[in-house]
Computed example of a mutant assay.
Amino acid sequence: MTPSRAEKSLTIVIPALNEQDKIADTIDGVLPLARELLDDFEIFLIDDGSTDATGAIMNEFAASDRRITVHHNAERRGVGAGFEYALSRAKFDAITLIPGDHAFQNEGIARMFKAVGAADMVITYRDNQSDRSVNRSIQSHSLRFVLNCMFGFWLSDYHSMIVYPVKWLRQIAVSQGRRLRLSDLRVDLAAPTRPHLCPGPREPERGVEGVIARAAAAHLFGAHRDHRLAAPPRSHPGCRSRSGSG
């Protein structure tokens, strides 16, 4: 008997501040991919107090598709606040954030969407960082090495796109009694030892990412090191498993 395929449903958060020249390109890239590659989705467009036409452009997209919701902040509140707004209203089990400045190219976003449902958490990484300056490369590699050693797992990138499990994020917010900060989430949720690795495309700008679909388990670190959540891993067609994190 062939095992049933996991449903590919996703809440997508796209925040932007004064990005009238790029927000349409971002949404025009994400929307067709979501329609093609996901079983169901919703998009939260977060206008973070923009003073240009960003909010008006978002409204136009929302008028054309009922799955798009626009939230306008009267003043700048930051990416984390927008993400938290969407998280509190998300109707699906998985959520991701895609910057509204068209930072990630469509081929990489497509690879991430294809991996939705392969595991409870999908972590992407950029594979064209060799064009960075020497100083930036040293700083980036050093910080990544320190964080990986501190928290006992091996991520290739701490600043790329992630598909988070909604239920775990909500537990972190409630149990810690604090507002979510995106910079914390990459170390609050740690992957185990058997990821499913999907190599990413080579892209000319910083929007390059492979996809690591992490096996479905996580440890909550920091103040909640004793709380553990787990679920059986699921395979993802076209991805290979490997014992290390790569």
Score class of each variant (00 low, 15 high):
G78C: 07
V79K: 13
G80P: 06
G80T: 14
G82F: 10
G82T: 09
F83A: 05
F83R: 04
E84S: 15
Y85M: 10
Y85I: 05
A86K: 02
L87C: 09
L87M: 11
S88G: 09
R89W: 06
A90F: 02
A90V: 02
A90S: 15
A90E: 01
F92A: 03
F92P: 01
F92H: 12
A94M: 01
I95Y: 04
I95S: 01
I95C: 02
T96K: 02
T96N: 02
L97H: 02
I98R: 02
I98W: 03
P99H: 13
P99E: 11
G100N: 13
D101W: 04
D101T: 05
H102G: 05
H102L: 15
A103D: 10
A103N: 13
F104P: 00
N106G: 04
E107I: 14
E107Q: 13
E107A: 15
G108R: 04
G108Y: 05
G108Q: 04
G108A: 14
I109N: 00
A110H: 10
A110C: 13
A110W: 05
A110Y: 10
R111M: 04
R111Y: 09
M112I: 15
M112D: 00
M112G: 05
F113Q: 01
F113M: 07
F113P: 01
A115T: 10
V116W: 01
V116K: 01
G117E: 00
A118I: 08
A118M: 10
A118V: 13
D120V: 05
D120Y: 06
D120Q: 07
D120K: 08
D120T: 10
M121D: 05
T124K: 00
T124C: 14
Y125S: 12
Y125R: 07
Y125D: 07
R126T: 09
R126E: 07
D127M: 07
D127H: 06
D127A: 04
D127L: 06
N128S: 13
Q129V: 11
Q129H: 12
R132E: 11
R132W: 14
S133G: 15
S133C: 12
S133H: 14
V134M: 12
V134S: 10
N135T: 10
N135S: 13
I138S: 01
I138L: 08
I138C: 03
